[in-house]
Design a protein around this nucleic acid. Structure first.
Lengths: 145, 145
DNA sequence: TGTATTTCCTATTAAATCGATAGGAATAAT
DNA sequence: ATTATTCCTATCGATTTAATAGGAAATACA
C-alpha cells in the first residue's frame, strides 16, 4: 500500500507541474487545494527538496518550485524518494538490496524469483512515466490509452 | 513491502507443493525447514485453510495439504489472501475498492491513473504465475527465463 | 530598520500495524 | 486413556505511520 506521504507528495508535484511559470508556490496553497494537512505537507516537500526533486525559496513570497521540466522527472526516482524501495522484498531491490536472514539461498528461493518479476514490471511503469505523463488526465486531448 | 506473513505463507505453500503425495504435513516440519516461527506459521496456515487454499487434518498424523494441483493455484488469489489488495491504493483495487476521502474526482486524479498501470502490470505477473511456476527454481532444466 | 511571512528543523505524540507468543480447546490416531 | 496435532482467541512489544508543535532562519517590503 502506498503511504499517505507518497500520495501527498505525488499530488503536490503534479500541482506544481501544472503551474504556469516557475514562481514559487506556497505550501499553504498546495495544502488547501489538494486537501493535505499543511504541516505534514511541509515535511514531505522538505524531503523532496533535499533529494533534489524540488527547489525552494524562503521568506515572504517564498515557496517550492520544480527545478526540472516535468517531462524530465522520472517517476521511478520520485517513488524511491517518497516510498523507498520499489521492490516488495529487499533481496530483489536494485537500490536498497539486503540479504534475507531466513533464506539460505537466493538462487533457489521461489519467492525471490516471483518478486523479481513483480519488481521488473512495476519498475517498467515507473520508468516509463514522467511527471508530465502523470499530469495528463483522461480528459486531455492527447491522452493515449 | 511484502509482510513476513505473506513471505512465510508463500514459502509454506511451495514446501507443500514440492511434496510427493498428498499426505498431511505438520506445521512443525514446515517451520523447521523454512525457518519460520512455528506459532506464527500456525496462524498463517489457518487463514490459508479458511480461505480455501489448503486442506487440513486434525489430531495425530494431522497437518496441512494442498487441495488443488499446484498448476491450478493462481498466485493472484494466494496474494490477496495473504497480503490483501494487490493495488497500491484502495481507489484502484478490483477486489477491495474504496473511495479516497481526500480526492474530489477519480477521473482527473493523476495518482489514480498511474496506480492503475502499476496494478495492471503487477496483476499480470500474479495471474500468469501458478504455484507450480513459482516452485520451479532456476536450477530446474525446464526453467524458461 | 523592523515587521510580517515563509521555509527549515527537531522533537513529540497518538494510532495503527506487524511480528510473534501464550494458553488451552477440539479432534483424531493408537 | 494418552498423545499429538490443528484450531481458536487473546495479548504483547516493537515498529511504523500520520500528524502536530514550536520555534529558528531567511527573505521581502514598508
Amino acid at each position: 500500500m502506498l503511504s499517505k506521504k507518497t500520495k501527498y507528495g505525488l499530488k503536490a508535484l503534479t500541482y506544481l507541474a501544472r503551474q504556469e511559470g516557475n514562481t514559487p508556490v506556497q505550501v499553504g496553497e498546495i495544502a488547501v487545494n489538494e486537501n493535505i494537512p499543511q504541516k505534514f505537507l511541509e515535511s514531505i516537500l522538505l524531503t523532496l527538496r533535499k533529494s533534489g526533486c524540488l527547489g525552494s525559496k524562503k521568506g515572504k513570497h517564498g515557496g517550492y518550485y520544480l527545478i526540472k521540466k516535468p517531462s524530465d522527472i522520472i517517476m521511478a526516482d520520485v517513488m524511491r524518494v517518497l516510498e523507498g524501495p520499489i521492490a516488495l522484498v529487499p533481496c530483489v531491490s536494485l537500490n536498497f538490496y539486503e540479504k534475507c536472514d531466513d533464506c539460505p539461498d537466493e538462487i533457489t528461493c521461489s519467492v525471490h524469483k516471483l518478486m523479481i518479476q513483480v519488481r521488473d514490471s512495476t519498475l517498467n511503469v515507473f520508468r516509463n512515466n514522467t511527471l508530465a505523463d502523470v499530469c495528463k488526465t483522461s480528459k486531455d486531448e492527447n491522452f493515449i490509452k
